[in-house]
Design a protein around this nucleic acid. Sequence first.
RNA 1: GCCGACGUAGCUCAAUUGGCAGAGCAAUGCUCUUGUAAAGCAAAGGUUAUGGGUUCGAUUCCCAUCGUCGGCUCCA
Length: 609
Amino acid sequence: MSESNPVPYAESDLYRLRHSAAHVMAEAVLALFPEAKLAIGPPIEEGFYYDFDLGRGDDGRPKTFSPEDLEAIEARMKALLKHNAPFQRSSKTIEEARAFFADQPYKLELIQELAAGKVDENGNPLSEPVSEVGIYQHRQFVDLCRGPHVAYTSQVKANAVKVLRSSGAYWRGDEKRPQLQRIYGTAWPNKEQLDEYLQRLEEAKARDHRRLGKELGLFHISQTVGTGLPLWLPKGAILRETLEGFLRQAQVERGYLPVITPHIAKIDLYITSGHYPYYKDSQYTPIDVDGEKFMLKPMNCPHHIEIYKSAPRSYRDLPYRLAEFGTVYRYEQSGELTGLTRVRGFTIDDSHLFVTPEQLEGEFINVVKLIQYIIQAMGIHDFRARLGTNDPNSDKYAGTPAMWERGIRAIRQAADKLGLPYSVEEGEAAFYGPKLDFIARDVLKREWQLGTVQVDFLLPERFDLEYVGEDGQKHRPVMIHRAPFGSMERFVGLLIEHFNGAFPLWLSPVQAVLIPITDRNVEYAQKVAADLRAAGLRVEVDDSGARMNAKIRHAQLQKVPYMLVVGDKEADNQAVAVRTRQNADRGAVPVSEFIGRARSLIESKSMEL
RNA sequence: GCCGACGUAGCUCAAUUGGCAGAGCAAUGCUCUUGUAAAGCAAAGGUUAUGGGUUCGAUUCCCAUCGUCGGCUCCA
């Protein structure tokens, strides 16, 4: 949860500080690499970056920054910061700026776009052409820049800046344009805040789902099976199945109907749906069998459509809501894969709703409410909603302008009725229609799309879907595609980080560990475990040769909600000594009482223990 | 896919300028029978990602492939 801040970041002192630090870093880079060409260097959420083109080396490949170069750049930056200099703003006409930046091709391109009124220095869209551009100078370093900056370089503290890393980054974010060298850095008002930030990064690593997934035995990715194809270990599978069961129940209550469809289908299915050209570059190669081509399914929509078409439909059948945990395969580029959040085989908690035009808004609202219900049940608050629309200048989108307009209007009206805030982002739609996405962030603050609802007028056309209306005439239904979790893999990945591996009782793969104090207590522990299992609880008995203290430590590190210590006293009284993972020793409790409390907490999906 | 860094035991990490590959934890066996975050001892665990090359000799240097990580691009 972000605190409400009266000053937007882009107008804050911290933003100026970082922007100024970016200029000083560029100054340091030019001092060490005089031939470097400057691209852009904006502040970002927790720091800043600057992009450079270092030209090509003798081998013809683009030159890059080595780790040693980065150290030298940071050292030079700190040295420069020891000498105070004012930041001075001025302006130049377009012609003056062109002459001044004559040997800086990227700046020239920026000036061109400013003059044309396309985008500003940071790549954001402009409303109108500019006739003069802003220039900031400190010492000999001059940059095309709208500012603002701090008044003096001394306001950037040498001990509160750090050069973090470098990487390749395409100019203008376009993989067809040159790849530049980006240096990321961070700057804070003082050393203490820099240290706090660096410590936060360390803590974030400790709750990374890839690390916790290994430590807690949730999933494994085997190179032998294939990269991006996670294996769910028993504990991870329990977690996932619990989530699936939760959603299944919610769907039953809302009139969804289960279906099951195969993992491959003839390629013609996707050609008809129009999916094929959009997914063909991210597909496993089709399987050729006796001259017929089959594809691993990259999405479930066409299969559900075929189910809709398997019988004539009447308006009385609608809304017709088909749901499936459908596994799909997409051959994502190798560099994009990440733990569970980006994989090549994943299961969408997919559903397709076939509705009449009149039902569209109401059904859309119900779906959004379902997603909100799911997200809230997990205690997730740090998410945002995004309306993804088509980019009229792109050929990525199918359908008519009227279809897009209707869809976008339906989503806006539904969101407004729900009072749901959302941002609008052009070019974020599915190819067949606009969508409302729910987006959360991982521990490294990377954004991931989770739940999604999409309005689709196109596929009903493509597949010639119809239903018989009250008037006896044939009508075209509208489709809603939706997935509250998004994918089981990604959702579980983010859930691991959200809870730092300490899942609420109802989701915990192991809800309690029985810890016998001596070997003679093992038998009693097993009897209690059987009683707890009979009551529907997931329990283990730690009958290893370790001492009690070590068993507690182990259960604690596994983030098991309850440790139930049993010795002679407990055996005599049909009791367990309850300890929670929050280090709370609750003392001896009758077994029946423990069962009652645990079941009630599970029933209510409580976050408490 | 692109740029960079990296790949040593199940996990976390060592190994001077190229010279017999080590430790802790886990797992295994034995002893101890323990009251709320790590008992002791023993034995075991490796074609140093894979395939080539240079060298008397390669974990170390070179090339290729695969993979991991951080970005870019892309995406549920």
